[in-house]
């Protein structure tokens, strides 16, 4: 009896939470990937089991609170009950059976979701966590990008997880559970976006000052769109002469110590690759939209967008910033 309203409440709570969140939600109850859907289903099963335990236990508690509350007119102590072997055996054995069942369900689920080798036809990506941004390398395709991971719709993606500094954790809830990126270790994770769309996530292991703004976007596209994105990303930086000589300005500053631009400079690697900077929707690992104003602000003072970001304030003059802006905006 108690179970139906409880499940209704859960159903209502999960659905209303998704509705409240809108299209940008990160709800684990709204999966779009075969790596996340079985976990959602597991939730519903476990909700049911613990819901029943909850109702029975709290019910017994509330019953004894109401029924056995002292009325104040008791003349002697209630009967003293020291224990009861059959009852105590019952509430030892029944929980053992329940947890053993849960253990079997869990173990089956672990083995079915765990994947250490890329499946046939999967797209392989290497995701490296840096303080505080994500680097995505498609080694087979010769592409390096940051913050936004493009994948084709309906094809499994096998992610190799690495860290360049401290421990991070790759988590896009609607696509898969999280797995940590740990220095000197190689971890794996897989997902498959079954719909076209943008799926949000962020670093889930505390990694220092800007852990909160180490965001992830996974953009799943129709295969043809993905292929044209790949074709563009594989190009070297476009050679478009700029009036203010921005490229020379870029090369003359410390920018090159960290940032690579394929075909121009590759001595860096500590910061995000900028070859196709303008093809990204966001900068600073998702902390701000990639607009002209934000990019300018970022060059002027990274702290104003992301306090504590490892990109230093280079104290650039307005002239230098103008030149850099002009150059960076050619990197499409």
């Amino acid at each position: 009896m108690g179970r139906i309203p409880l499940l209704l409440i859960l159903f209502f709570a999960t659905n209303s939470s998704i509705a409240l969140a809108g299209p940008e939600n990160l709800s684990i109850f709204d999966p779009v990937s075969p790596a996340a859907t079985p976990i959602r289903d597991l939730f519903m099963l476990v909700f049911g089991v613990i819901g029943i335990i909850f109702v029975i236990t709290e019910g017994a508690l509330i019953w004894s609170i109401i029924r056995y509350r002292a009325k104040g007119d008791e003349t002697k102590e209630p009967p003293q009950v020291y224990g009861s072997n059959p009852i105590e055996v019952a509430w030892t054995v029944i929980p053992i059976i329940i947890v053993f069942t849960l253990f079997l369900v869990t173990t089956r689920s672990i083995y079915s979701l765990d994947m250490q080798e890329a499946p046939e036809g999967a797209l392989k990506v290497k995701a490296t966590g840096h303080q505080w941004w994500w680097e995505f390398e498609y080694e087979d395709l010769g592409i390096t990008t940051a913050g936004e991971l493009h994948v084709p719709e309906g094809i499994p993606v096998f992610v190799e997880l690495r860290s360049a500094d401290v421990i991070h954790s790759f988590w896009v809830p609607r696509l898969a559970g999280k797995i940590d990126c740990i220095p000197n270790r190689e971890n794996h994770l897989w997902f498959q976006a079954d719909e076209v769309g943008t799926w949000y996530g962020q670093c889930a292991e505390f990694c220092g000052s800007q852990h909160a703004k180490m965001l992830i976007r996974v953009i799943s596209e129709k295969e043809v769109d993905f292929n044209s994105w790949v074709a563009n990303q594989q190009l070297q930086a476009a050679e478009i002469p700029t009036e203010a000589n921005g490229k020379e300005t870029f090369l003359s500053l410390a920018c090159i110590n960290c940032h690579n631009i394929q075909g121009v400079t590759t001595v860096g690697g500590f910061g995000p690759d900028l070859t196709h900077l303008m093809s990204r929707d966001t900068i600073a690992s998702g902390a701000a939209n990639n607009s002209t104003d934000n990019l300018r602000l970022w060059l002027q003072n990274p702290d104003s967008i992301k306090e504590g970001a490892l990109m230093p304030n280079m104290m650039l003059s307005d002239k230098e910033i103008d030149a850099l802006m002009e150059y960076l905006q050619t990197l499409k």
């Binding site: 079985p38 869990t106 999280k178």
Partner: peptide, 24 residues
């Protein structure tokens, strides 16, 4: 009454694939 629920959410966290979503 509260410890019952805290214990039960602990059971949820022990289901490893659920923990992959809920951990941290």
């Amino acid at each position: 009454s509260m410890f019952v629920l805290g214990g039960l959410t602990g059971i949820m966290l022990a289901v490893v694939p659920m923990d992959w979503q809920l951990s941290d």
